[in-house]
């Protein structure tokens, strides 16, 4: 047992030494951990790894992407929002406001230090190709007549990226949204499977996810919730063209750290992420997989997540899904 005790003492001494070494101004001087709030192999994992590859190349330090998607990402957000503020544990920031409203976690815009946003994908509205519904106008008209007459898949969990903007649009249209029949799915693929099998009427998710089924002639996209038509999908009208209401939204991904990080450090990280974002390999990697490369710097991203919180709160209160009303 003495040998074990000796080992422990030595180890403890080493730790003290490591901690006592003063932090230098250069970031990063050791490996950085990036938490992806989703499992390995999905879109979030892919975009994070794409970014990590460039950061690694540019800084010469490993950027380890760690997948913590359990509990819809709650575990991953908790890990990095409670980590040391030294810039060595960062994570993916994506729509988060619903967690607090559903009583799942306490995250607010104050829980994170936003660094930058690098991706945004607008929500789109999809129907089966043989459906009676042919356009977004049809959907609005049907829901106005009877709000619960359509089975609408959220393309993932509900009160999330895809259904919040859609419901927001319906609110503008004056639909009694509390009665809308929103159905959660295990991801957009499962929702699309339900759509094609005839189990539901409408799926909400991003457009690239439906590419294969659209080319198979099984699915039709009737509208996208973005300000302008997407370059890759010029035939899909925007919600504004169809309804006249300029409602936009969808999912987005950014880099953030725990709250209260040193602004100088944040600026350093922002610069590194921006350089990675502008690299040709990152841009083409995003484009090939159909992800929208959208840049928001620290200031814009900070404002944006506040806006996200407000929209989510408003919609969820109208839906009656918010547990904590305020």
């Amino acid at each position: 047992m003495t040998s074990i005790r000796n080992l422990l003492t030595t180890a403890a001494a080493c730790v003290v030494l490591a901690v006592a070494t003063p932090a230098r101004a250069e970031w990063p001087e050791r490996p950085v951990t990036l938490i992806a709030v989703a499992g390995a192999g999905g879109g979030s994992d892919y975009t994070m790894r794409l970014l990590a590859r460039e950061l690694e190349e540019n800084t010469g330090q490993p950027f380890n992407v760690i997948n913590q998607g359990q509990g819809g990402g709650v575990i991953g957000y908790t890990t990095y929002s409670t980590a040391a503020k030294d810039g060595y544990t960062l994570g993916q920031l994506s729509p988060f406001a619903q967690f607090k409203l559903l009583g799942q976690a306490d995250f607010t815009s104050e829980s994170f230090t936003p660094v930058a946003q690098f991706n945004a994908d607008p929500a789109a509205v999809h129907v089966a190709a043989n459906s009676k519904i042919k356009s977004l106008k049809d959907i609005v008209a049907t829901l106005k007549a009877d709000p619960s007459s359509l089975k609408i898949s959220c393309g993932g969990t509900c009160s999330a990226s895809w259904d919040i903007p859609f419901v927001s649009l319906m609110l503008e249209e004056g639909v009694d949204v509390a009665k809308i029949n929103l159905i959660p799915a295990q991801g957009s693929a499962a929702g699309l499977q339900e759509l094609v099998s005839g189990g539901i009427d409408v799926v909400l998710c991003s457009i690239p996810e439906t590419d294969s089924l659209t080319s198979a002639g099984l699915v039709k996209t009737v509208g996208v919730l973005s300000a302008e038509r997407l370059e890759k999908y010029p035939d899909v009208p925007t919600a504004e063209e169809e309804t006249g209401k300029a409602v936009t939204g969808g999912t987005w991904r950014g880099i953030a750290g725990p709250a209260g990080m040193d602004p100088a450090l944040v600026a350093q990280i922002e610069a590194a992420v921006h350089k990675a974002f502008n690299s040709e390999r990152f841009q083409s990697g995003m484009k090939d997989r159909g992800f929208g490369a959208v840049w928001l710097g620290t200031a814009d991203f900070t404002a944006f997540i506040k806006q996200h919180e407000d929209q989510t709160k408003r919609v969820m209160n109208a839906l009656g899904t918010a547990e904590v009303a305020d």
Partner: peptide
């Protein structure tokens, strides 16, 4: 295999060990 195992006292030089 890049499993994120903690490096403890070796953290500051772990960049070379991955």
């Amino acid at each position: 295999l890049h499993v994120p195992l903690p490096w403890g006292p070796l953290t500051s030089i772990s960049g070379w060990l991955i």
